[in-house]
Design a protein around this nucleic acid. Sequence first.
DNA 1: TGAAATGTTGGGGCG
DNA 2: ACGCCCCAACATTTC
Length: 470
Amino acid sequence: MNDTCILWFRKDLRLDDNPALIEAAKHERIIPLFIFDRNLEEYNKIGEASHWWLEKSLISLSEDLNQKLNILEGDSLEIISNIIKEEKIKHVYWNRCYEPDRIAADTFLKKEITKLNVFAKSFNSSLLWEPWKIKNKSGNFYKVFTPFFKKGCLQTDQPRIPCKKPKELFFLKLFKEDNIYQFKFQKSKNKWYAKFEKIWNVSEAAAKNIFNNFLENGASDYNVGRNFPSKNSVSKISAYLHWGQISPFRVWHEAKNRMSGSHKETFLSELGWREFSYHLLYHFPKINKQNLKEQFNKLDWNVSNELLLKWKKGKTGFPIVDAGMRELWKTGYMHNRLRMITASFLVKNLLIHWKEGEKWFWDCLLDADLANNSASWQWVAGTGSDAAPFFRIFNPITQGQKFDKDALYIRKYLPEIAKLPNKFIFTPWLADKEILSDANITLGLDYPYPIIDYISSRKKALDAFKKISN
DNA sequence: TGAAATGTTGGGGCG
DNA sequence: ACGCCCCAACATTTC
């Protein structure tokens, strides 16, 4: 008797702690499947950096599956239905995703293949708490983080203990190479992504290593060190978490066991923010398109491609901002402190709509994640649920002086001003001619003058905000 | 997980 | 010894 099932990989590209795999392993043979489905926004609008990561992930996952991963491009329902018919499949398993269009597509697909007399089952591999399970006393979903996390999450079921990869597995490959999804970057001569190759190792094993390295080296200083971008005190697991190369359940329990005190509390609450983002996405499906606080629809945003472009390129003339934007461009990653500084600069000092920033980050970040990216931009912009107040405007000079005191981070990403002394490296335009020439800098040529006056830009933002507050 | 403006306090210099 | 001013340091308020 033919006992073959389909295991549909999506954002769970791992073998460890994979509930759908555990279920699939109860069958004799598994057809591991990945579908690049352009009907879904996450593939149709996939960012360049994310696309690179995905390809690396699939190559690596296939290796872990003895080169048996079936990678296809096309309509998910059509592909799965065909395999069901040709291989006489009776069981299909996958782990859930939470993007609104994915939820709709999955619901429809489940209904359709059930009609073919197939048993379809989905599991949870990527959220510690299902978004529909966390409710406040009056039965509504939470809109404020602290009660969401402390009462909603921590006082209900603890995240389950992660499960191990099953021992006996038999994978089946159905398609020849020439039928599969064509890797874009493998063929492309685009050099932009080439630098990622040297920095990031994309695999389940690498995810485990990088997290272990954090636990051993960064975790004991996390609560303080995480604010300083020149230190190695953050985990850098975000992209792995997004694609599921590491399980949030694994991360949660490891952190609980191996971290301590305030470091542990803070790290776990950061995982809580990730849950909160998904919670918001689930209950506000338009979170990437609309202000959650509707009064911001009236705000008179600045439309300037010129300023936006300078921000994207890291040529604003404010070194801490530019260093952050260069880190993003060079590495596909940006330290959290810099995400706040650069985002605040775009939205408040340039008064450009957060959606522009959201789009740029979506394209450049290896960890681009619909829920986290949208919720975080709305948080910085002050337009979100339980967001930072709009008037919390980061000073693009003092943030550098506070969190990159010795300018190690600035010098790393802005070599053109590296020779400036610490006293002027946060404000090159205040340095006199001799100091600039000693550092081989001609302002306006080697490094830009500030593109805005930060004092008046701050006032402008507050005025614009005042107008919509009445 | 701000920053600036404004208010308060207290020590020291000095007539 | 006293009042006055200055100002740093800290606290509070405001956006």
